[in-house]
Amino acid sequence: MVARIDDLTRRKSATPASAGRQGRFGAFVKRSWPPVALLAACFVLWWVVTAAGLVKPYLVPSPGDTLRVILDKPGYFGFHTWVTTYETVLGFGIAIVVGVLAAVLMVSSPAVEKTVYPLLLFAQVIPKIAIAPLFVVWLGFGLTPKIFVAVLMAFFPVVISMVTGLKSIDPEMLQLSATMGAGRGQTFRKIRFPASLPYLFSGLKIAATLAVTGAVVGEFVGANAGLGYVILQANGNLDTPVLFAGLFIMSLLGVVLFVLVEVLEYFVLPWHVSRRSDSGAVATI
Results as ranks from 00 to 15, higher is better:
G75F: 05
T164N: 12
S196Y: 12
A223D: 06
A95V: 12
E113F: 12
L260H: 03
W82G: 13
V60F: 12
F267H: 14
G23N: 11
W82I: 07
F43T: 06
L101P: 03
I129L: 14
G78W: 10
V125M: 10
S202R: 01
E265K: 01
A208F: 01
S251M: 03
A41T: 05
T50C: 10
L166I: 14
D65T: 08
P270G: 01
G142V: 15
F79V: 03
L71R: 13
F193D: 07
F135D: 10
M1H: 13
T209V: 15
A281K: 00
K190Q: 11
S202V: 00
P194F: 09
D278I: 00
R192S: 13
F258H: 02
V2R: 14
G280I: 11
L227F: 04
W46P: 05
C42D: 03
R11H: 03
V151R: 06
R192H: 10
G228P: 03
N235I: 08
G93W: 00
F25K: 00
R189L: 14
A111P: 04
L210V: 10
V107E: 09
Q22C: 05
L238K: 09
E219S: 11
L45V: 15
P61W: 02
S32Q: 05
G203W: 03
L121A: 11
N224P: 02
V261E: 00
L166N: 12
E113D: 14
D65N: 08
T115H: 08
A154R: 12
T50F: 08
F267A: 10
Y266V: 01
A195T: 13
D6S: 08
N224V: 12
I129Y: 04
F135L: 14
R276A: 09
L120V: 10
M1W: 14
Y86H: 02
G236R: 05
P194K: 07
A211V: 11
A95I: 09
K146N: 11
F258G: 01
F148L: 12
K146A: 11
A195C: 12
V44A: 11
M153N: 06
E262S: 05
A211N: 06
A123D: 07
E172D: 14
S168Y: 10
I249F: 06
L134Q: 10
F244H: 01
L176T: 15
G91V: 07
F43D: 02
G183C: 10
R275P: 01
V149Y: 05
I206K: 01
I285G: 13
A178F: 09
L247E: 02
F267K: 11
V216E: 07
L119R: 07
G218L: 04
L134R: 04
P270Q: 04
V98T: 08
M250P: 04
Q233G: 06
S177L: 13
F267V: 09
P171D: 14
V104H: 02
S277V: 09
S62F: 00
A283G: 09
F25N: 02
I249P: 01
V83A: 09
A195Q: 14
K167N: 15
G20R: 15
A154K: 08
E113S: 14
V212T: 15
M180W: 08
H272W: 00
T284M: 03
K30N: 15
K73A: 07
G91H: 05
L139M: 12
